[in-house]
Design a protein around this nucleic acid. Structure first.
Lengths: 337, 337
DNA sequence: AAGCAATAGTTAAACGCTTAACTCTATACC
DNA sequence: GGTATAGAGTTAAGCGTTTAACTATTGCTT
């Protein structure tokens, strides 16, 4: 592989000149610039990123970190959407994307990950901050790397969905349709801040509608479709009079949909089911899911924009991405009784 | 950040010694090894990967490349599964995963990507080789990097699903159920070798069953759910007597399912619909899809295993991953007429 | 005509690691 | 007792960039 020196020799200048021309440092004649550029083309020079990284301390690599919890990592289509947003932005700026999936063991993060963070290989990191008890961002911040968190603590630079609003929207939707006997398919308590806010929103809307949130039947799932099926089964068995199931994510809603079908309950005529996230599959279920769209693409995009501002030495404001109620076919007024 | 030299000073040895101890080169006393390891712990030394890369030529980074074609990139859940398999294996071996999504413009690949390949940042690459007309692997191979292709040309080191078998299985399934009037929802001709084999398998099974493949009604989609809906609508309009729709992927099958529902056709009683891929959502549609499972996780795993063998200087055999017919609720014998 | 600033380019050190080549024991062998 | 030999460790030369510090030239003021 040709090196800077080869280019320099060919162009009849010093390596410093070549380096500076390539990095657009001012103070060069057009003639020199052209000579250099020509030489680069002729011998097909491509800079060695490792050398550049060592010398400049900048690697042009940013990491997207999503810790391994539950099955919520690779099974979650939302991650792909967020990733797409991030990727698009990075591609534009010539940055490379490294993905890291640290294993969380006993509230701590695995050794590989720690090494990576400290290895000097990263210019910055974007974390999908699922778990409050072991922030994957702590080592990043300690190392002094620019970091932005998606759905993370507002303490850090972060972009999050407005989950409180999401909770309000979905509950209001159910109340407006006339539902009062609503089952909640939820997840373990405060698995992350986003969920807390979402539940709070649901609660606030319930209260406002004169419904006691605490007395609503609940079942605890783990985000997976299978758990949605189980929770729906359990709720409908114990409370056959429920007219709606509010699920904390789409995959559990899809599971609930399946269970409803198995029980011979027609959705939405006999049972309303709502989701949350608006994953691609939510639009294609039968009936398609009423849900909350989180604008995952925008989220990813904003996160990388924020990271790049940090890399430029700016101090961006944390962002809250608005959510949107998407009414599809899985919700309707409760049946007369 | 502490460097090798700091460790060496602290341990009272030379940097070479430290380096060798850390890389497990033989010929050291336990005492020395312990001294070094202790010093490493004490000052919290972590090797600088950029320096290591520059010096050794090994970066511990492998790239997963999936070109941007159609919407089939980030929208495709299969990619996540494959990625998960690759990630698991890389994590085990202490390698880092970089993802690259080259843009294909006029049969060529974008400049960023080319630079990355030649930058010396990569130890190897795994490509999801969707497009035959612009192999993203060409520049990789030219650069001399170990490369393995998933679903790529058998000319390269590759791991592919046995799509021919998949085609046979799904068509045989339909024939065994008694279907003869089968509509095919396909994609543009030979978009990739996998699809060619799949179609060939379908054709062979049809022939074996005494059915003329060429005379079967076909509609051309683009892998997306929406196109599945359109194709189904078109086929059912032009050929109301169809008893089954064979779709070349699950997402189009899900679209078809929606259209069937819209038309008031009950699946599978009045219309059988089959998919291909067995994406997670396929198990949760109503009714769940009969489809072909490609073992994406295994595919990813085998691809990285193969890459690591290449990195070790071995010459692995290309692998064909067997597929599996998954019979769910969307297929049944055709209705009497 | 001297002084100065801006422009154009060079030299060489530094980044932090690996590794070939070397030195210096201590032991083994005949 | 002399010579291999294997073990333990060191020295120093890279790897391919960037960049601070420097030199040289030109043009502009006064």
């Amino acid at each position: 592989m040709p090196t800077l020196e080869d280019v320099a020799r060919r162009a009849g200048v010093s390596t410093a000149t070549v380096s500076k021309v390539l990095s657009n440092t001012p103070y060069f004649t057009e003639a020199t610039r052209n000579k250099v550029l020509l030489a680069v083309k002729e011998i097909g020079y491509v800079p060695n990123l490792a050398a550049r990284a060592l010398s400049s301390g900048k690697t042009q690599i940013i990491a997207v970190v999503f810790p391994y919890v539950y099955d919520a990592i690779f099974a979650d289509p939302r991650i792909l959407c967020v990733l797409e947003g991030i990727d698009a932005e990075c591609n534009l700026r010539g940055y490379n994307l490294l993905i890291s999936t640290p294993r969380l063991i006993e509230g701590s993060v695995d050794e590989n990950y720690l090494q990576l963070i400290q290895s000097g290989y990263l210019d910055g990191v974007i974390a999908l901050n699922h778990v409050p008890f072991a922030s994957v961002l702590d080592p990043v911040i300690k190392k002094g790397l620019p970091a932005v968190s998606i759905g993370g603590p507002p303490s850090a630079y972060s972009v999050s969905s407005d989950h409180h609003a999401g909770g309000v929207l979905i509950m209001e939707h159910l109340l407006e349709l006339g539902h009062r006997r609503i089952g909640i398919i939820t997840v373990p308590d405060s698995i992350n801040t986003g969920t807390e806010q979402l539940l709070q929103g649901i609660q606030d809307a319930a209260q406002a509608g004169g419904l006691d949130f605490n007395s609503l039947p609940k079942a605890v799932g783990d985000y997976s479709t299978a758990s949605g099926t189980d929770c729906a089964a359990q709720l409908l068995r114990q409370h056959p009079d429920l007219t709606a199931l509010l699920c904390l994510n789409d995959r559990m809603a899809m599971g609930a949909l399946q269970e409803a079908h198995r029980l011979g309950l027609r959705v939405p005529e006999q049972l309303t089911i709502t989701g949350y996230d608006d994953i691609p599959a939510a639009a294609t279920t039968v009936p398609p899911l009423t849900t909350i769209n989180q604008r995952s693409l925008t989220t990813g995009y904003e996160a990388s924009r924020m990271l790049f501002e940090l890399l430029n030495g700016q101090k961006p404001e944390s962002k809250i991405i608005p959510v949107e109620l998407v009414v599809r076919g899985s919700s309707a007024p409760p049946a007369r009784r």
